[in-house]
Amino acid sequence: MRKVSIQIQSIVGRRSYGCDILFRVIDIQNRQGRSYAILYGEDYRLIADAPFEDLIQVDARLQRKISEQFESLEKQSLQLFRQDIDLIHEKQEYQSSNAYVENYQFFQVPGRVLHLDGDSSYLKKCTALYEKIGVPVYGVHCDEKEMPNKIASFIDHYRPDIMVITGHDAYSKAKGKKSDINAYRHSKYFVETVIEARRKIPHRDQLVIFAGACQSHFESLIHAGANFASSPSRVNIHALDPVYIVAKVAFTPFVDSVNVWDVLRNTLTGEKGLGGVDTKGVLRTGMPFRPVMDEE
């Protein structure tokens, strides 16, 4: 690591925190003669700011090393998730074929996801994972502060079964106690967005909502109407954690409930960063499945 001229898009660490998290510089501000950088976490949904003298630019070698560590964790989570989906599929096949007595062909319609993200780069990572898993998704980049005013029109336009409201967040001890929502960077906007979404669709099983980011005010999000939220212990959450949560809901049959622990165990953050309430799945199974062949 070396100290150099910090620019927008530089990858940096904070000296005062032992460079424990990699950040991307997204803005530079001048405050009373000092230069400050506005930072987005590279792998965690955390927003922060820091004076230039506290920043160290991270070289490409260390970036690759840390990136490889996260990729390994992501592969493990994806493998566990796919095992769960395979078990759900086998159960559906068993039931649809009358315990394999009949040779019925069936098809499945997973829930549609509307993913609102305050970070465009995270949105790309998440939509790529949705597509890899096979979840229909509409991805929208939207500033956290604008989400409450836009969510109603998004719901009308996309008509989702599941919605993700996320981006970046952070708790600041200097602004108040952890119980005070005004001490959080974006939690109040996430809460307002959930409230507006529930004005449109009040029932938790008609629209499943995940809301929050790093260190978000978990209790307020759940009380506002979210099915799942972050962060019970005010810890950082991984950028892809919302995808694993809602994908589990998308592939669980609507006649079954999604056990909260079954959802959390395949995330990268776990129960300290994520939580929720028992929720029905949204997957629907139909039959018969008969591919239409074009006439020659």
Rank of each mutant, 00 (worst) to 15 (best):
D117W: 12
D119M: 02
D119Q: 07
D119V: 09
D119N: 07
Y122S: 12
Y122T: 04
L123Y: 05
L123I: 06
L123K: 02
L123P: 02
L123A: 13
L123R: 01
K124T: 15
K125C: 03
K125M: 09
T127R: 12
T127L: 04
L129M: 11
E131P: 00
E131R: 14
K132T: 15
K132L: 14
G134S: 09
G134D: 09
V135N: 03
P136V: 05
V137Q: 09
H141S: 11
H141G: 12
D143H: 13
K145A: 15
E146Q: 14
M147E: 00
M147G: 07
P148I: 05
K150F: 08
I151Y: 00
I151W: 05
A152Q: 13
S153P: 10
F154C: 05
F154E: 07
F154H: 01
D156R: 08
Y158V: 14
I162R: 03
I162W: 09
I162T: 01
V164D: 12
V164Q: 03
H168N: 11
H168R: 08
H168C: 11
D169N: 03
D169A: 03
A170W: 11
A170N: 15
Y171I: 08
Y171W: 11
S172C: 09
S172H: 15
S172Y: 15
A174V: 13
K175R: 09
G176Q: 00
K177N: 15
S179Y: 08
S179I: 10
D180Q: 12
I181S: 11
I181G: 02
R185M: 10
H186F: 07
S187E: 05
K188R: 14
Y189R: 02
F190H: 01
F190C: 03
V191I: 13
V191N: 00
V191R: 11
V191A: 07
E192Y: 10
T193P: 07
I195C: 05
A197F: 06
R199S: 13
K200F: 01
I201P: 05
I201K: 06
I201M: 02
